[in-house]
């Protein structure tokens, strides 16, 4: 049994320490917020200029001028604050954000991350991805273990354009939790019922245990 998206979000939530500042990337990482105990004292940072981001607003309460970096309507929790983009990226670059949870297209055994462009594909832009990947204190990647064509996303060397070099600390896929160490990928945890052999077969680089 592989982890469902919800189970992955719940597992990722265990990576978040009490009282930390966390930036959640667009897509799957956004779901992690739903699995955190309210009393953990975690503050969500959104790079468009909001610290203390809350859940989606109740129907009828949405405000087009209160959005997250994915341009979705959100709320602001008590204690939240608003600032300009220069201050916001100063928080990221200045190592004030404890953890960023990002998506990935490829992760290399040396921690290189590629998550903004596919060679020959439609250019979507960089946004805050490079700043977050190189600036947050710790990077957790949440991703499917292989592409929709079945190719490994965990590779020896990235062939897609890099987002940042040597930035990834830990990877959470539907199959396993894997750390990036100075020696390469190391298996930390398997999803229930998933075999080490399956993870190894779907990983494009050596995997230590």
């Amino acid at each position: 049994m592989v982890w469902s998206k919800e189970q992955m979000a719940a597992r990722a939530a265990q990576e978040i320490g009490a009282g930390s500042i966390v930036n959640l990337g667009i897509g799957l990482p956004t779901m992690v917020a739903d699995y955190l105990p309210a009393d953990l004292g975690v503050w969500f940072h959104s790079e468009n200029g909001l610290l203390g981001m809350g859940p989606f607003p109740y129907e009828g309460d949405e405000d087009s001028q209160i959005i997250n970096a994915g341009k979705q309507t959100v709320t602001i929790v008590p204690g939240g604050s608003i600032f300009d983009s220069a201050a916001s990226f100063g928080m990221i670059r200045g190592r004030h954000v404890d953890l960023a949870i990002l998506g990935a297209m490829q992760i290399a055994a040396n921690g290189d991350l590629a998550n903004w462009a596919i060679p020959g594909g439609k250019v979507m832009g960089i946004g805050g991805a490079m700043d977050l990947a190189s600036g947050a204190k710790r990077i957790l990647v949440m991703t499917t273990h292989v592409t929709n064509k079945g190719e490994p996303k965990l590779v020896e060397r990235c062939t897609y354009p890099l987002t940042a070099k040597g930035c990834v600390n830990r990877i959470l896929s539907e199959l396993a939790v894997i750390d990036v160490t100075p020696e390469g990928f190391r298996l930390v945890e398997l999803a229930p019922g998933v075999s080490e052999a399956e993870v190894r077969q779907k990983t494009g680089a050596p995997l230590a245990v």
Binding site: I126, G127, D131
Partner: peptide, 28 residues
């Protein structure tokens, strides 16, 4: 990169002609 974009603008307004940033190192 978005942070570099706004820092370049901030620098122009603050009289800083250029600056070194870790963002984008080793990328296109």
């Amino acid at each position: 990169p978005q942070g570099t974009f706004i820092e370049r603008i901030r620098a122009a307004g603050a009289g800083i002609p250029a600056f070194f940033t870790p963002t984008g190192a080793g990328t296109v």
